[in-house]
């Protein structure tokens, strides 16, 4: 092959695989996606706040919220961030056994949170609050349901990592994959802190 460019560079393998920023493509993509997701939750939370106290028929938030109950499930979700960090630390130390334990624990805590949400939704429906009951019902269920879907997708990803690890397909070199799922998981957690504060704790 003829040398074709002026000042031809010897193809250096490291250069070819070097990213321009030193970060991996996947990590930048995940940050970009999460940045986009911020706006998604931002618009939904704004909608909830805009419609706070504007429902013309009940049930109203103070009549259905069980703050101690939701505090417990929020605590469960927050703890799952800790176990996620432990999972990442485990794979970085190539400790597959602890990796699996912490991945499974994280997924379990996430599932407990979703279970808590299902129970909460059911009890709200029993109290007569449905999506078509009033503005509160519409904005509450869509916002928290949307967040719950995010947690559910996170649990799916955690379980996928767990099964990959069982099959021996999650070696230490792939620690980044765990890190990316972790980024997503922490993001979903942080969003819940916002939702819990703005939706549950601030009285309408």
């Amino acid at each position: 092959m003829a040398a074709t460019v002026h000042d031809p560079v010897e193809a250096d393998d490291d250069v070819l695989h070097h990213s321009a920023t030193g970060l991996s493509n996947e990590k930048i993509a995940m940050w970009a996606f999460l940045a986009s997701d911020c706006l998604l939750f931002g618009a939904l939370i704004s909608t909830y706040i805009l419609y706070r106290g504007r429902s013309v028929v009940g049930p109203y938030p103070h009549g259905v919220y069980d703050i101690p109950y939701t505090s417990v499930s929020s605590f469960v979700l927050l703890m799952s961030s800790l176990t996620m960090v432990l999972a990442l630390s485990a794979i970085q130390r190539n400790d597959q056994r602890r990796l699996r334990i912490w991945l499974l624990t994280t997924a379990l805590l996430g599932t407990v949170f979703i279970g808590g949400q299902v129970y909460e939704f059911t009890s709200f429906v029993r109290m007569g609050l449905k999506i078509h009951t009033n503005l509160f019902g519409s904005s509450f269920f869509v916002l928290t349901g949307f967040h719950g879907t995010h947690v559910f997708i996170g649990v799916l990803m955690l379980m996928s990592l767990f099964s990959l690890s069982l099959k021996g397909k999650l070696p230490q070199e792939k620690a980044q994959t765990v890190e990316l799922v972790g980024l997503y998981w922490h993001f979903v957690d942080v969003i819940w802190i916002l939702i819990f504060t703005l939706v549950y704790l601030i009285p309408s």
């Binding site: 909608t47 013309v56 078509h132 503005l135 519409s138 904005s139 869509v142």
Partner: peptide
Amino acid sequence: MFDRQFGGHFFDAQAGAD
């Protein structure tokens, strides 16, 4: 979509929406 498919009230002025 929720208003049209699932009876939401996000844009229903009679339900207090804007």
